[in-house]
């Protein structure tokens, strides 16, 4: 492990006043040595990969001669070629479109349900809320690959209890794994895994609101629904904004669910989502230069969306606050 041992400073308390230590060792060396593990790991595994990917994205591989032998491939500066190729690749546009649609389906449903569940948990008229809260949060403990496996089997007509029932009833229900519906199949997996977590985030912020506000409204004759709409939702708007932001970022990176489902269906291409496309370029096609450029594009789009979203929401929800 790259843990650097911070030396124990041979500082004796009697040599210096305890309140203000101003020598170099105590003020600079000690804090930086203690930060060293974090800084080194950050540089090695976050900063360096990003910089190296930027570097790769401006390179291309050139084959000289017949392209045989180890010396025949050289890399040259490519300028923006990889970016132009990546952005004009119809597969990239198609995968971006699918992910956009996926987000439009998933995020409103997931956050709407999370908000509804959180408000119901917070209502005093709800019974059994501890059980429901735990049960709805439980899928958070199941990793995306395992939940995709479970749902994948539930979608598979041969083993699914749903299709068993549909069959007995004589209904002909098309498979969710068919190409027109597979996006709903994936959205459902993400909904199952994410609704509980978002519910807990919203519920925690509801709990932080002092209850006297509700009591006052109640005495004034407000119904539970009115209290929810007029008081609770406005107060917890920041929490909802954050959950929306994190959900959007997660949506853009969807990879595990479609990759896991692929063996069960023919409707998922190797370029279904942008990240799957990057994976294919880097590992199946061995074209790390375009994969690097596409990675950078995805990262930039993620940043841009987060930034724009926060700007828009801050203007509308938090008004003059900023």
């Amino acid at each position: 492990m790259t843990v650097i041992e911070a030396p124990k400073p041979v500082v004796r308390a009697e040599y210096r006043p305890a309140a203000r230590r101003s020598n170099f060792r105590q003020r600079v060396l000690v804090p930086y040595l203690m930060l060293a593990p974090g800084i080194i790991l950050f540089v090695l595994f976050m900063a360096a990969p990003i910089i190296y990917t930027l570097f790769l994205s401006f390179q291309k591989s050139q084959v000289s001669g017949l392209g045989l032998g180890s010396g025949s491939r050289t890399t040259t500066f490519a300028g923006l070629d990889n970016y132009i190729a990546s952005l004009s690749n119809p597969e990239f546009a198609a995968s971006a479109g699918r992910v956009l649609l996926y987000g439009v389906i998933l995020i409103p449903v997931m956050l709407g349900l999370a908000l509804l569940f959180a408000l119901l948990l917070d209502s005093r008229r709800t019974r059994g809320s501890n059980f429901s809260r735990t049960a709805i949060f439980l899928p958070y403990a199941v990793p995306a690959v395992i939940s995709s496996l479970l749902w994948g089997f539930l979608y598979l007509p041969a083993v699914s209890p749903f299709y068993f029932v549909f069959d007995k009833l004589g209904w002909d229900v098309p498979s969710l794994l068919a190409s027109s519906a597979v996006i709903f199949a994936i959205s459902n997996i993400a909904l199952w895994g994410g609704v509980g977590f978002n519910m807990i985030v919203i519920y925690t912020s509801l709990k932080a609101v002092p209850t006297d506000i509700y009591e006052a409204a109640k005495l004034d004759g407000c119904s539970e629904v009115q209290i929810a709409w007029r008081i609770k939702i406005p107060i917890i708007t920041p929490a909802i904004v954050m959950t929306a932001l994190f959900s959007m970022v997660a949506t853009l990176q969807v990879f595990s669910e479609p990759t896991t489902l692929r063996p069960l269906t023919n409707s998922l291409s190797t370029s279904w989502s942008p990240l799957m496309l990057v994976y294919r370029d880097a590992f199946t096609r061995d074209d790390i230069y375009s994969a690097a450029a596409t990675s950078i594009v995805i990262a930039l789009v993620t940043f841009a969306i987060s930034f724009l979203f926060l700007r828009v929401v801050q203007k509308r929800a938090f008004g003059q606050e900023d």
Binding site: P49, Y52, L56, A292, S295
Partner: peptide, 8 residues
């Protein structure tokens, strides 16, 4: 997003 760069 970092996974592929980390691999490289």
């Amino acid at each position: 997003i970092l996974a592929i760069p980390q691999y490289f």
